[in-house]
């Protein structure tokens, strides 16, 4: 899959000098779903392939703009190093923090074994 992504990027660079490539394949969708830890049914995967292609095709017009020297904006409000006083305050108790957990063991969150 990694090579496929690289190949798509290279094709994108070759075609337009940019990496936008709105044609999404079923394999792309399966790969991204894996990254997102999201199980999709076969029907969902087919629908997702169509939907993502449609939306990514629409947003491609951003590429008309030449923005090489523009700084990206992550947040619009100018705040730098917002610090609060370093005071000890009551937080959630362990019982409160665990109260919503689907499974608890030995005072912690219990999960199925990793890697099995």
């Amino acid at each position: 899959m990694f090579y496929k992504v690289v190949a798509l990027v290279l094709i994108g660079v070759w075609v337009g000098g940019r990496t936008l490539c709105a044609v999404i394949s079923g394999e792309d969708v399966a790969y991204v779903a894996r990254l997102a830890r999201l199980r999709l049914t076969e029907d969902e995967q087919a629908q997702m392939t169509r939907d993502l292609s449609s939306v990514l095709g629409y947003v491609e017009h951003m590429d008309e703009l030449s923005l090489e020297d523009v700084q990206p904006t992550a947040r619009v409000v100018d705040l730098v190093n917002e610090l609060r006083p370093d005071e000890v305050k009551p937080g959630l108790t362990k019982d409160q923090a665990l109260a919503n957990a689907p499974e608890v063991a030995d005072g912690g969150f219990a999960v199925p074994a990793a890697g099995s």
Binding site: Q71, T73, A74
Partner: peptide
């Protein structure tokens, strides 16, 4: 191409 470009559009 997507997120970076979108954040620059946001600046504009």
């Amino acid at each position: 191409a997507y997120y970076g470009q979108a954040q620059k559009v946001r600046t504009k």
